[in-house]
C-alpha cells in the first residue's frame, strides 16, 4: 500500500501520525481512502475537485504535474508539500 506523509498541519486529523498507509492506484484514490480512515483530511487537500493550489504532490521524490491523477504503485511514497514560487520543489 502507498505510504502517505501527512503534512504537519494536518497531523491532528491522524492522531499525530506523520506517516500512514492508504490504498489506492492514484493520488485521488489514496485521498479517498485517507478520508475513510481520517475524516476531514480530504477537504484539507482538495478544493473544487482539484488539489489545493498552495499544495504540490510529490510521489517518490518527484513533484507530479498530474497531481491527483498521478498513478501510484504499492511501494509509492506520497508527500503533500507547499508549492513553491518560481519553482523550488520538491
Amino acid at each position: 500500500m502507498p505510504v502517505v506523509w501527512i503534512p504537519a498541519l494536518l497531523r491532528p486529523l491522524t492522531g499525530g501520525q506523520a506517516r500512514v498507509q492508504a490504498a489506492g492506484a492514484t493520488v485521488q484514490a489514496v485521498i479517498v481512502s485517507l478520508e475513510a480512515q481520517y475524516p476531514g483530511l480530504q477537504a484539507r487537500l482538495i478544493t473544487d475537485g482539484q488539489l489545493r493550489p498552495e499544495l504540490a504532490v510529490v510521489v517518490d521524490g518527484q513533484t507530479s504535474p498530474l497531481k491527483l491523477r498521478q498513478p501510484l504503485t504499492d511501494a509509492s511514497e506520497v508527500h503533500f508539500v507547499i508549492a513553491m514560487s518560481g519553482g523550488a520543489g520538491p
Binding site: P7, A8, L9, L10, R11, A18, A43, R44, L45, T47, R52, E54, L55, I82
Partner: peptide, 18 residues
Amino acid sequence: LGQKGEQPTNVAAHYLDE
C-alpha cells in the same frame, strides 16, 4: 491548509513542516 481563521487579519497563510 484549507482551514480558515475566523478573525480579519493580515496573516494570509501559516505553514508548518515538522
